[in-house]
Amino acid sequence: MTIRERLASLASGAPAALLALPARASGWGELNMPRGVTDISRKIYDLHMTIFWVCVVIGVVVFGVMIWSMVSFRKSRGAVADVTLVHNTKVEIVWTVIPVIILIAMAVPAARVLVEIEDTTRSALTIKVTGFQWGWQYDYLDDGVMYYSHLDRASNAARELLSGIDPTTVPHYLLNVDHPLVVPVDTKVRLLITGADVIHSWWLPDFGVKKDAIPGFINEAWFKVDADKPGLYRGQCAELCGRDHGFMPIVVDARPKAEFDAWLKSTAAEQKQAAPAQATAAPAAPAPASAAATMPGAG
């Protein structure tokens, strides 16, 4: 397509799209934060909703008074200004103190949840997560299992500039990977998150986890998926990390404990034999990008 054609398609697309929209339900419903499948994610959701409603209430009051004045104090309606009304210590104190109280009332629960989030102790499984340009490396430290996770083939083909492939035909477009992170449900899993080249951020909305992957440093995070909620959960890299920042999704495959243990054993075994082979065939070993050349001692 030439630029002109593309623009044309865009122009025609606009109204067409609007009409077609209700038909293909692709997102009108997506309005709010997911409640998620961990205790923490639900607590975060509740915080989010409380502060939201607090703001709504304050908004209604403030905007209410404003609209009232706009309606009833118009010059066109013959309103005369009361120029003496320029100061009132009482109300000024009130509308300073009330917000303070509201804010403290909001800060306390927030702090509580935060303290809980920051407590990574007593975890049953520790996985090292390394973000690189552009994918994720998962390393089960205690079990000698390690593998890389990239955007899956179908999405990767469709996302090429003018690929001609309709994204809506691709299952989980841009949210699918070749090798998801496999974890057990009902288990406190601790992540040790770091970056190989630039900063990335490991984000899984349904777990309420987002932590930056800082090169040379390790950040900790944890989650505990509800026992009754095994399944595939999807997220994306949440820190600009270069050209393909938009194309390094995160998929977590939460399995019942027994299934997970079986998977871990077999994979460990496979990787032991494959060890020599893998060394050579290591696909996207975190390649320190061109910057390494300019950054002494990096990589």
């Binding site: 430290l141 040379g216 440093f217 900790e220």
Partner: peptide
Amino acid sequence: KIFTNYVLW
């Protein structure tokens, strides 16, 4: 940041 040292350095 204990793990930073323990794992990386």
